[in-house]
Design a protein around this nucleic acid. Structure first.
Length: 310
DNA sequence: GCATGTCAAGTTGTG
DNA sequence: CACAACTTGACATGC
């Protein structure tokens, strides 16, 4: 059975995640900074709990948590630890409720660190800040029971093999909490499925297969072959596979990379119809897009009847 | 209220 | 050289 996943935000439900800027925080003294961050973190944690309810209500099976749930957490000047916040106890309580709901509804939670998280960079300061960010996301993932932290391989820096070797070294040295959640996704310009497979095989890193990126950045593998490689990489670690679907905003012409509001049914691979896997729907229209795809594929509400037993 | 400029971070390709 | 693209526009400010 396929479970569809919503990514990060809601367009219809009144569920909002709030942010702030470092610049505005820097005009405040530390106590005032922490007070404002406290309010944002508390609101966002409550919004995450509401998000799970809505995801379940809509019959979806997965939710991608936005990286900025705790705004500016790893920022060099205004960063903080949850324990420093006045409402820390309440925030941890709510996070635990998120985990309990997630288990009760059989939902799957994931993270997708943004483009600044690069383990292949030759610049040590880039790698160091990336690992800081991964430590933060892994801590949060452990608290709410998210099993996936999915990143791209990053830049090429003029030598793809050398970059892949740096990536492999960094992955091997990661703390367990990150290592056992880390996944690699093929991207739309540099690293294809074929590029990533040797590393995924060698280090038992699951491959998140993005078919839109694959179509933008082909590698000679068919969709069927890439799907099969993805499934195998997850089977090896005994976990449910994870894939991404999106459609091009302007069609498959000159500019296929930007994402459309909805998924074109024709872009959904036939090879995926019988999968038991999580498929994140990367569509600007958010819930309506996931709902439309769910209807077009005639998928039942998640969890399927019987999945809740035990 | 609403329009507009700005926002922590890296890398790549395009116009 | 500026800017968009990337999993996601939203915040802060000034009128």
């Amino acid at each position: 059975m396929i479970r569809l996943g919503l990514c990060c935000l809601f367009r219809q439900a009144p569920i909002k995640f709030s942010a702030t800027t470092a610049r505005s925080l820097l005009r405040l003294d530390r106590d005032a900074q922490l007070a404002r961050l406290d309010r944002l973190c508390l609101e966002n944690t409550l919004a995450l709990l509401a998000a799970l309810e809505e995801v379940k209500r809509l019959g979806f099976g997965a939710f991608r948590v936005l990286s900025t749930l705790f705004p500016l957490y790893t920022h060099p000047d205004v960063g903080y630890q949850l324990e420093q916040l006045p409402s820390a106890r309440q925030i941890f309580d709510i996070l635990q409720q998120v985990r309990i709901r997630k288990e009760y509804y059989h939902l799957r939670l994931s993270f997708h660190p943004d483009q600044f998280v690069l383990l292949s960079s030759p610049r040590p300061e880039v790698t160091a800040s990336s690992i800081d960010e991964l430590v933060y996301q892994a801590k949060l993932a452990a608290l709410i029971g998210a099993d996936v932290i999915n990143i791209h391989a990053g830049g090429v820096y003029g030598d793809k093999q050398a970059a892949l070797e740096r990536l492999a070294e960094q992955i091997e040295a990661l703390p367990q909490a990150i290592r056992n959640r880390l996944t690699l996704e093929n991207d739309d310009q540099s690293y294809s499925v074929a590029d990533l497979l040797p590393l995924c095989d060698k280090l038992s890193v699951p491959l998140v297969y993005d078919v839109h990126h694959h179509r933008c950045n082909p590698d000679g593998l068919s969709v069927a072959a890439a799907t099969s490689a993805c499934l195998q990489s997850w089977q090896r670690v005994g976990r449910e596979a994870h894939l991404h679907i999106s459609s091009p905003k302007y069609g498959w012409g000159e500019e296929p990379k930007p994402h459309a509001d909805f998924i074109d049914r024709a872009d959904f691979p036939d090879e995926w119809l019988d999968l038991s896997a999580t498929i994140d729907v990367e569509a600007k229209a958010k819930e309506p897009a996931v709902l439309r795809l769910k209807e077009q594929l005639a998928l039942p509400d998640w969890p399927e009847k019987g999945a809740n037993d035990g």
